[in-house]
Design a protein around this nucleic acid. Structure first.
Ligand SMILES: [Zn+2]
Ligand SMILES: [Zn+2]
Length: 799
DNA sequence: AGCACGCCGACT
DNA sequence: GTCGGCGTGCTC
């Protein structure tokens, strides 16, 4: 018997399965989906591999090596996920093994090490071994050479170790022994052995106990280790270990029951549960009660003994969100998010794999949750860019969800108040079933939105001979005053996309740049240094300008700190909470700030994009957007879409139930349609207008996009390679299809490598995929000459 | 990737 | 002569 194994060597030349002999002893145990350790290469190198199939014959002409050993007794990947991995590799131009690894918790990645064994006493007494029988192979080159020489002479053996980091938490337990008559024994025990008698009595009083943990005996009954040891020595009990699941849920929840649905919600619910062959796009305004629909849909499929997967963007996956789902489905819920420790994540994953959890809630990577019998997949806020992974494999969770939906023949729900144009257009073409929920559940009125024209404000200030020095306009300041007077709360959004604080010499205009990248260094006041976000380069904040020596160095860029200072001057009585990268570096800080604000420990929450999501704040009646324009300045065809989404989302935070909300949007582009239509909260009108723009520019959803990035240490080399790649692609393009570039991105150099980009706009091109795989092959082979290539299918970020 | 093999200049 | 630097090719 042979096994087809995909080895953990992510390169182009090894990006296929290898045949291995299955040793007779393992024949009964080997199944596709298991991890194994196999020898690989001419030395004794061993690597982890995934069994992707078994066969009775092999097409490999030479002799196959046997599998070294099994890592998993049970498969960790189902045949569904194995198939998915292949599709994913093909779609994202990633290595197969990377796709397989991505589907599993991080701890299941192998750790490799080498151990050298001294076979003679001379070697053992050498300076290197210092009497030890074995040492781990050092990094030092000359020492490695010495070991290689000894190895050749048969004086040293080198072992290749594949470590499995995945570990379960074990606990000691005391087991009842069936033939022991505790009621009798207890009468025979010496009178002074009170603890022994107590232990026996416990097992007499609890006939249902088969075992109990040592910790429980210690904590509940103060029975220590020595007592237990003695009891085992008598033969009354046996000792063993059981696995303890790491429990990420700190607080118990009070169960909730389904709410009565509105007519709109009921219609959505009905459509979803009957739409197994067509995905449903659920377009519902903020407050329309999408989550309740999701929960009842999940309930419906659980009753049919199916499972449910619900994806939520990482920043929306708050404790409140998790609690809401757990309140409905209790212990059936497993949660996968970045806040878990590696061990907790591994345990949650295994709970799902062992079918002990039927509902999974998680962020992007949870789309690979090993659920069987999927009944429904829900993607909330489907427009969120964070569903697309930035590094390899560059997959979009939405695409994966649609694949799994097709595999299981189950409904896939894409929910959003502001759907991506791609999804909305598919709703129009009835590829997706479009369901709209335009009303809020309690019929709260939409907030009143006012656009503040900053050009006007500036002119006004000039007339009064006092140039606008603050980032807050007069109408917004007035509104803030009124809000505070009513003891209500306000949110201020500082749109800082692409903007960071940098240092500027006021004398000569010098700005410190990273020596390795073409980018200005960011000021980090917290750590008191200048930092490069691309390569991690760090240097102290200089006191004097490097060029002119002037000491007039100023912190520049629109910062939340600057606005905070202004707020303190304008509204000295206001309590301001600031939320940005500086205040949320520590884990959980993000949640803590939101919590404080929810508990009304502050009047104003001032922050960047991250405040647009998360907790509900019922007392917030005022939202101010300080600079609506910054998102528009970005060289990306989705700039309007992103701006519209952000403004709509943050506006939705104003006003709940009886309290009417008020929104101020400050802008220099009051006529921009994204800003105009966001102020009217009119998604459908925005969709129509934006579609025209996309049509004119041949952008998605009218065209598909592929971004190719090529890099090299030398600029000319990078360009030459990119140019040749472009030349190969151009001939196969269809009439209206386009190739743009190669061009340098805004940050043309990162970590001393030069980058070039090619964008392809295409529609139905049969040969493109194949050609790109070929190009990938060719360029990867030139990796040793310093070339690197990345192909991003449907990029979310154009830069 | 990581390792072996092979070719070539430089140093004991 | 041999050590070690690097370019090339292979891994079931
Ligand atoms: Zn200067
Ligand atoms: Zn840098």
């Amino acid at each position: 018997m042979y096994a087809q194994v995909v080895v953990d060597v992510p390169t182009q030349q090894t990006d296929h399965s290898f045949d291995y002999l299955i040793p007779a002893a393992l024949e009964k145990f080997i199944v596709a989906g298991q991890r194994v350790v196999v020898p690989f290469g001419r030395s004794g190198r061993r690597v982890q591999g995934f069994v992707v199939g078994t066969s009775t014959t092999s097409s490999y002409a030479q002799k196959c090596k046997p599998i070294a050993y099994l890592i998993d007794l049970q498969p960790v990947l189902s045949s569904e996920l194995l198939q998915l991995s292949q599709w994913l590799a093909n779609r994202t131009f990633a290595f197969w093994v990377d796709c397989l690894q991505t589907m599993l918790p991080n701890v299941m990645r192998a750790k490799y090490s080498k151990k050298a064994w001294a076979l003679t006493s001379t070697v053992r007494q050498s300076a290197l071994f210092q009497g030890a029988a074995a040492i781990s192979v050092p990094n030092d080159l000359t020492q490695q050479r010495q070991l290689a020489q000894w190895q050749k002479q048969g004086q040293v053996r080198i072992d290749y170790l594949v470590e499995n980091k995945a570990q379960t938490r074990q606990q000691l337990v005391l087991n009842r022994v069936a033939n022991q008559d505790y009621a009798h024994i207890v009468t025979q025990v010496k009178p002074q052995a009170t603890k022994q008698r107590q232990l026996l009595q416990l097992f007499i009083d609890h006939p249902d106990w088969q075992q109990i943990t040592y910790t429980a005996l210690q904590q509940k009954y103060q029975i220590g280790n020595s007592v237990i040891k003695a009891a085992i020595a008598h033969g009354w009990f046996t000792r063993s270990q059981i696995e303890i699941r790491r429990n990420p849920y700190t607080n118990p929840v009070t169960p909730s029951s389904p709410q009565v649905l509105t007519a709109e919600q009921r219609k959505a619910y009905q459509t979803i549960i009957t739409s197994a062959s067509r995905p449903v796009l659920l377009e519902g305004v903020t407050g329309s009660g999408k989550t309740e629909v999701y929960l009842q849909v999940i309930e419906h499929f659980l009753q049919q003994h199916k499972t449910a997967l619900m994806l939520v963007p990482e920043i929306s996956l708050t404790p409140q969100m998790v609690t809401r789902v757990r309140a409905r489905f209790g212990g059936q819920v497993a949660v996968l998010h970045s806040g878990l420790s590696q061990g907790e994540r591994y345990d949650e994953w295994r709970r799902i794999n062992q079918q002990q959890a039927q509902v999974v809630v998680g962020a992007r990577s949870a789309v690979f949750a090993p659920l069987r019998h999927l009944g429904v997949i829900i993607i909330d806020e489907e427009h969120e860019a964070s569903y697309k992974q930035i590094d390899n494999p560059r997959y979009h969770a939405r695409d994966v969800a649609l694949w799994r939906g097709r595999y299981h023949h189950c409904p896939v729900v894409l929910g959003s108040a502001t759907p991506s144009l791609e999804s909305r257009a598919r709703g129009q073409k009835r590829v997706y079933q479009l369901v709209q929920m335009p009303h809020r559940v309690y019929n709260q009125p939409l907030p009143q939105v006012q656009i503040v024209d900053l050009r006007e404000q500036q002119n006004l200030a000039l007339e009064l001979n006092s140039p606008l020095q603050v980032d807050l306009s007069q109408p917004l300041i007035t509104a803030l005053h009124q809000c505070l007077k009513k003891h209500e709360q306000a949110i201020l959004l500082l749109n800082r996309r692409g903007y960071a604080n940098f240092l500027l010499c006021r004398n000569c205009g010098f700005v410190p740049h990273c020596p390795n990248c073409d980018i200005t260094l960011t000021v980090h006041l917290q750590e008191h240094c200048l930092l490069c976000h691309y390569c991690g380069h760090r240097e102290p904040i200089m006191k004097q300008c490097q060029v002119c020596g002037s000491s007039k160095l100023r912190l520049s860029g629109t910062g939340t700190q600057k606005v905070e200072t202004q707020l303190q001057e304008l509204l000295p009585q206001a309590r301001v909470l600031r939320m940005d990268n500086d205040t949320t570096t520590r884990k959980g800080a993000h949640q803590r700030i939101l919590q404080q604000f929810a508990q009304q420990q502050a009047d104003i929450l001032l922050g960047t994009q991250m405040i647009a999501k998360g907790l509900d704040f019922p007392n917030v009646t005022l939202v101010g957007v300080i600079n609506a324009d910054t998102g528009l300045g970005i060289n990306d065809f989705r700039a309007n879409e992103r701006t519209f989404q952000l403004l709509t989302q943050v506006s939705g935070r104003a006003g709940r139930k009886q309290k009417l909300g008020q929104v101020f949007i400050q802008t220099y582009n009051p006529d921009n349609y994204a800003i105009q239509l966001a102020s009217q909260q009119d998604y459908e009108a925005f969709y129509r207008q934006e579609m025209q723009f996309r049509h004119q520019g041949n952008y998605p959803p009218y065209f598909f996009l592929i971004k190719i990035t090529i890099s090299h240490q030398e600029r000319a080399q990078a360009f030459k390679m990119a140019y040749n790649v472009a030349k190969r692609i151009k001939p196969i393009l269809q009439p209206r299809e386009q190739l743009l570039g190669p061009v340098q991105p805004t940050v043309a150099r990162i970590k001393n490598r030069y980058y070039y980009q090619i964008i392809i706009k295409y529609r139905h091109n049969q040969s493109l995929g194949q050609l790109l795989h070929q190009i990938m092959n060719n360029v990867q082979i030139d990796k040793k000459r310093g070339f690197a290539i990345a192909i991003d299918n449907e990029p979310q970020q154009m830069e």
